[in-house]
Design a protein around this nucleic acid. Structure first.
Lengths: 343, 343
DNA sequence: TTTAGCACTCAGTTGATAGGAGTGCTAATC
DNA sequence: GATTAGCACTCCTATCAACTGAGTGCTAAA
């Protein structure tokens, strides 16, 4: 869809004005506020063309124009000027990771809370899955018969702990032995590598102790298969309610319904291009409940392996430039911090 | 305020009808639905008296009556018939604690999620604070220089773990030593007792190792003073939005503002009678933001010591009988489970 | 003391009207 | 040929009056 320069300017003006005010944009207001050097009548003519192309639409005859979903798509693809976060905002983000104790659960909470201050969107975060984190050490702590705590420390200093159930036949000595084996063979490897490696290397070595291996596998699996890791964390509900589109109670209810549907949020968040900030607008999100929203998402990684996704969800009339800047910066910093490049 | 029997019946009818329908109640509908054996005119006379007493009020001249805040108070104190949970509901609550791993954080989440299904209120939960839990064992796990994991297991099998920072001068051997001391002297005591006991018993014993004592105190304090324990957990936002009072967008915003104010929620939750289910109605809650809500709260305990509070927040027109039954049952079960009486 | 009956009040709805914002089209201008 | 001024037209929004109906309060009778 090749638009001449002036049509692009008009479309850009309409999108940006509507993002700012949430109101339909009139030809006259464009002529006044954006110095295109032509009269409102000329802009009206261009608007008629843009409407024919399906990029803008009229809520009713005597109203101004608002961008259509394809209009926003055109804007995001070709008109939007990428912006960076201000250094003040970047500093704010850095404070998320200033705290010394590197506990994943805390970091997730702090990330969401902080981003909430940076945008008016709903903040979504999945993971991080530790599968691709390299192991520094595993500690096991026998608690009660049949119960032990497994503590995982990654090479980059992140701590995660889980209580697991064991066959009650496993003694404290077994556990110590298992811990030793795990640390000896697996230090520096990722969990993913462990599952592959174990069969080759360790199995032969410990063939005499079949039972111990079974236990080891149970532990590794218990740690990896914890469903709670797959939870979607979210915040900023209050934020998004400030947007004028949610002064209608039905919109609010729809939004709350969406928030409740964790599986939907998950599929939205995971439908993300692996190497770039992804923008999905309205019906581009393959989900009926969400066809009135847009999402900006990106994955973050540990040592180059995707381990989670981060995203912002807002009305279609959201500030895409800012949302993209936030998502890009957050996922960059998350990746750095989890991979240990900084700090 | 002594009301004759019929006035009480009329007040009860008004409160219960209004709780059910959220609409003003007319004399005629009472005459029809509640078999009082008198005509609507007689009920109108009684209503006039009740209004003069300030127990009911009229939104406008040609509307029915709704209970006033003192009217609800009278109802809760003298008219409300206490009810128990159905055995189906009780069974549902028991499933919260069916999971084997006794991890406090998980239990908190599950409790909230479950109660969300039992009422239309906002579910609030604080704690549990471990101060009054008796200690089975403490494990320390050195992680990195200056960082250790402290794992606490209570006598009743609950597990809580924290990453703490230590002076980097503390070695792994120090830590093991500290762990031994802690376990030797403190097993079976509550954290509260520990803080009192340590000065008397242990200090003399370990006088040669002043430094170690300081470390111990640091650990004990680090564990106790973790702010995250004082967080208020909440759920059921979607529930409460279904209530007809929240079809007004400003009401929704006010509610969201209240939810955001964690310190307010905390003070509401902690203003609870220590030995009974507490009901606070509207302005009885000492908080302007909350004067349009009612709360039903109660504390739960470990071995008789209060360790946290549980409550339901809803519109003043809430189902008090059910809310009280839920709060009473949940706190009873929480206390049992945490104290180890069952399971 | 209770009740039937009726006048009265007032919120909510409907319908008509006026005002205003914005467009689309036409004819004049550059 | 592109641009623009001007004007008729559309349709949303606000306002006001009239109407409706639910519910009350009061009075007089049972």
């Amino acid at each position: 869809m090749g638009l001449n320069a002036r049509k692009q300017q008009v479309l850009e003006a309409i999108v940006e004005s509507h993002i700012k005010t949430a109101e339909p944009v009139s030809s006259r207001s464009i002529a006044r506020k954006y110095r295109l050097g032509v009269s409102s009548a000329t802009i009206r003519n261009e608007m008629a063309d843009l409407e024919e192309l399906g990029l803008i639409e009229q809520p009713h005859t005597s109203a101004g124009r608002i961008p259509s979903q394809p209009g926003y798509r055109y804007y995001v693809d070709r008109l939007l000027k990428k912006s960076d976060l201000s250094s003040r905002d970047e500093k704010l983000v850095r404070t998320i990771f200033a705290q010394k104790a590197r506990v994943l659960a805390n970091m997730v909470q702090r990330t969401i809370k902080t981003v909430t201050k940076l945008t008016d969107c709903l903040v979504l975060l999945s993971g991080p899955q530790l599968e691709n984190a390299a192991l520094r050490q595993i500690k096991t702590v026998p608690l009660l018969p049949g119960k032990a705590l497994v503590v995982i420390v990654t090479v980059t200093g992140w701590v995660e702990s889980k209580v697991i159930d064991l066959p009650s036949s496993v003694t404290a000595e077994d556990l110590t032995h298992i811990e030793n084996v795990l640390n000896t063979y697996f230090r520096g490897l990722t969990f993913q590598q462990i599952s592959r490696t174990i069969l080759n290397n360790v199995y032969d070595e410990l063939i005499k102790q079949r039972k111990a291996i079974d236990r080891i596998m149970e532990i590794v699996e218990a740690v990896l298969q914890d469903d709670s890791d797959e939870a979607i964390y979210l915040g900023g509900t209050q934020n998004i309610l400030k947007q004028p589109e949610y002064s209608d109670i039905d919109e609010v209810r729809n939004l709350m319904g969406l928030i409740e549907e964790e599986s939907t949020l998950r599929s939205i968040l995971l439908d993300t291009h692996p190497h770039a900030v992804t923008v999905r607008i309205g019906r581009e999100i393959k989900c009926d409940l969400a066809s009135n929203y847009s999402v900006v998402t990106a994955v973050y990684n540990i040592g180059g392996y995707a381990v989670g996704a981060f995203g912002l969800l807002g009305p279609i009339r959201m500030d895409y430039a800012r949302a993209m800047a936030v998502v890009e910066y957050i996922t960059k910093v998350l990746s750095e911090v989890l991979s240990g490049d900084t700090l």
